[in-house]
Simulated assay, not measured.
Amino acid sequence: MGHARNHFQRVSAANQGSADQLTGQQQALQWLHTQRALLSALQSRQAREAHKAQVLPEITPYLQGVLQADAGGQDTIVSYCTVWALDAGAWALALALGQYAIRHGIDMPDEFKRNAATLMVDLMADAALSGRMSGADISHHLAEALHATQGSNMPDQSRAKAHKAIAYGLAGKTTLAGQPGDWKSLSAATLALALGHLQQAEQLDTNAGVKKDIAAVQKLLDAATATAAPVAAAAATPGNKPATKPATKPATKRKPKT
């Protein structure tokens, strides 16, 4: 009995050690299973997005560990959380997970039918165009996503949409009614930047819907350039220095008569 008990304890300890090593991923998978079941019961898109934003911090330590290890390998938790971070507006996390997935060739969930690069750019651009992403986030996170996916296999329409979204973000414009933006408030330099993105969108997808924007921005940029040119020329012309008063000699004091 003593030998049997000792053997049982050794086997149990070994099994416990293996279980401890797998606990982190097992718990993460159980968490994912639970959250997917909860999300399936929510029919409202806004309710699902709010739920994802609420629960993502629970899994963040696991995700940070994966990112830090940078080991790669197909990971269902990373796949789903990349999408959920995009849906929840957790842009920094979404960008980190998306870049990790691209770097290691991790597949996204089958139901989305897009690779990581396309999914990240598509969902970020959609959020920007629908007003769910702030101008600052567009200039930083969406622009970085576009840069990070330069060499990725992606439809031209997705890149075009991202360029359009970046240009619109500069003017505070969205595709929603009542948010036409204000191209006129932009400086000449910002107008030139916006025009570049709009033209790239048009080149990538002639149906991007930016033709009128290009015409409007080009007209404003031409006007700004025409106004600035004479001022710059006048400032650079020799002889146009501001007139200076001639130096006057100090008055001499008269000696008093004696």
Score class of each variant (00 low, 15 high):
Val78Tyr: 12
Gly65Thr: 01
Gly65Ser: 14
Leu93Ser: 10
Cys81Pro: 06
Pro61Met: 09
Trp91Leu: 00
Gln74Gly: 11
Tyr80Leu: 05
Val55Thr: 11
Cys81Thr: 07
Ala92Ile: 02
Leu86Glu: 04
Gln68Met: 03
Leu63His: 02
Val55Asn: 06
Ser79Trp: 00
Gly65His: 03
Leu67Lys: 09
Asp75Thr: 03
Gly89Tyr: 01
Tyr62Phe: 15
Val83Pro: 00
Leu86Trp: 06
Thr76Gly: 10
Leu56His: 12
Gly65Phe: 13
Thr60Ser: 13
Gln68Pro: 00
Asp75Ile: 00
Tyr80Asp: 14
Pro57Ala: 11
Ala92Val: 10
Pro61Ser: 13
Leu56Glu: 07
Ala69Ser: 14
Gln64Tyr: 00
Ala88Ser: 14
Leu93Lys: 11
Leu56Asn: 07
Asp75Arg: 07
Trp84Thr: 09
Gln68Gly: 01
Gly89Arg: 14
Ala71Ile: 00
Glu58Phe: 04
Asp87Ser: 14
Tyr80Gly: 04
Val66Leu: 01
Gln68His: 09
Ser79Thr: 06
Trp84Val: 11
Ala94Pro: 04
Asp75Trp: 03
Ala92Gln: 15
Leu95Met: 12
Ile77Cys: 10
Pro57Gln: 13
Ala96Ile: 05
Ala71Pro: 06
Ala94Lys: 05
Tyr80Pro: 03
Ala90Gly: 02
Ala96His: 03
Gly73Val: 09
Pro57Phe: 11
Ala94Asn: 10
Ala88Asn: 08
Val55Asp: 06
Val55His: 08
Cys81Asp: 04
Ile77Asp: 04
Leu63Gly: 01
Leu63Phe: 12
Ala92Thr: 13
Ala71Lys: 14
Thr60Cys: 06
